[in-house]
Design a protein around this nucleic acid. Sequence first.
DNA 1: ACATTTTGTTAGATGAATCTAACATTGTAG
DNA 2: CTACAATGTTAGATTCATCTAACAAAATGT
Lengths: 219, 219
Amino acid sequence: MISLTEENYLKALFNLANNAGEVNVNELSKQLDIKMPTVTSMMKKLAEKKLVHYESYKPLRLTEKGKKEAALVIRKHRLTEMFLVDKMGFGWEEVHDIAEQVEHVRSAVFFDKLDELLGFPKIDPHGAPIPDKNGKFAWIAYDKLSDCHAGETVKVSAVIHTSSEFLKFLNNREIRLGTKIKIKSVESFDGSMIVSYDNRPADTLTHTVCERLLVEKTK
Amino acid sequence: MISLTEENYLKALFNLANNAGEVNVNELSKQLDIKMPTVTSMMKKLAEKKLVHYESYKPLRLTEKGKKEAALVIRKHRLTEMFLVDKMGFGWEEVHDIAEQVEHVRSAVFFDKLDELLGFPKIDPHGAPIPDKNGKFAWIAYDKLSDCHAGETVKVSAVIHTSSEFLKFLNNREIRLGTKIKIKSVESFDGSMIVSYDNRPADTLTHTVCERLLVEKTK
DNA sequence: ACATTTTGTTAGATGAATCTAACATTGTAG
DNA sequence: CTACAATGTTAGATTCATCTAACAAAATGT
Ligand SMILES: [Mn+2]
Ligand SMILES: [Mn+2]
Ligand SMILES: [Mn+2]
Ligand SMILES: [Mn+2]
C-alpha cells in the first residue's frame, strides 16, 4: 500500500528524473517544499519498499517498480485534469491543484470510468502524454518553439512548466494547443520571437515563453 | 482549518445525532470503527475548536458551528454522489466509498461546478437532501413504507441505511426512487408486505426492507 | 591544496491520529 | 442497595510525516 505522501514523492521523483534518470535529495526537497532530512528518511522508507534505489550521498533513482507506480499516479493526475477540462468546463489553468488531490482517490473503477468517458485520451490538457494502465508512456518528440527558426510555421502541441500564471498569460494571448504560429523573425540578442497566429497582429514572445512551448513543425 | 479526519468525525456526529441531537462516545466509536479513547481525545480537540460541546461523561453535542461544518461536508459528499450517478453513469450502490474520499477535496470552485452542472439538485441519488451553501437542510417528511397500510399506493422517495448490499438488493427487485408501490396486504405477525409495482408479479418485502424505504403517499 | 559553499545525513523533537491497559463513572438488575 | 455490566477517561506507547540543530561529505574556486 502506497500512502498519499509516498505517491507525491514518487511523482515528484519521476518528473524530475525525466532526462538523467537521477535526482538529488536537494532538488527533490525543493520540488516538494520539504526539508532535506525529511526527504532522506522518506527515501530510506521507499528503498525498503523497493521503490527507489538509495545509497548515502548518491543520486536517487526510481526502481522499475517505482517508475511504474509513479506513472500510475501521473496517469490518475492527467486523467483527472482531462476530465475537469473536457467534461466539467474548467480552464487548463485551474485544474492542477484539484487533480493534485483527486489523484489520490483509491478506486480503480473511478479512474477507469474517467478514461472511458474521455474516450481513452492519449494526452492531457497541457499536451502531456497519459500513461497506459501498465504505466507505459507514448513519448512524443516535440521541439521547443525556442529551437525553431524564422520563416517556419509550427503548431503548439504541449506546454511545459504549467504554472497557473503562465497558462493565464497564454490565455490572454489566445495561445492554446493547436494554435499555428508563424515565426516572422528571431532577435538574436535575447532569443525573443516576433510571431503571428490566428490573424492577430504580430506579437513578441520572450525567450522564456518560447522555451515553454513545445511545437510540431508543419510543412 | 478542519482536517480530513475531523471532517469524518463531524459528519458521523451529525448523522448519528439526527433525532436526539445527542450522541454517545460509544456509538460514535462504533460508527467510525475507532476505539473509545481515540474518540474522547478527538472530542476534546473539537471542543477546543468550538465544534462540539464536550463534558466528561455527558453525551456529545455539536455546536452550531459544528453543525454547519458537518452539513457542508455532507453537502460535498452528496453533490459528489449525485455527480457520479447522474453525470458519470455509476450505480447508486457504487458511489458512497468514492464520495467518502472526494468529499475532502479542498476546492470551492470544484464543488460549485458540480452543483452547477447538476442544476443545483436538492436531493442525492438516495433521496437524501443536499444542504445549501450555508449548511441549511430542506427536510422533507417522508413515511416509512413499514408504517403504511394495505390498499395504499406510495412512491419510493428515499432509502435509509444505504449499504451497497441493500442497494444491490433493490436493483435486483428493480426498485428505485420514483417506483410506485401498491400495498396488497401486510402480514401482521412479521410486518412483511405483499406488494406490486411496475406490472411485475406480486412480491413480498420483509419488514427490514420496508423500514428502510421512505415513501410519499399518492392519492 | 586548502577554504568555503553546497549538499546530505544523523539525532532528537514534535504533532496528528491511532492503539492497549488500567482505572473511573454511570446505569441496571436483582 | 449493592453488584455487575456498560460506558467513558487517563496514561502511556506507536506510527507517520514533519521539523531543527549539529555534523559529515562532496563540490567548487582560487
Ligand atoms: Mn498537473
Ligand atoms: Mn498529490
Ligand atoms: Mn453516501
Ligand atoms: Mn470521508
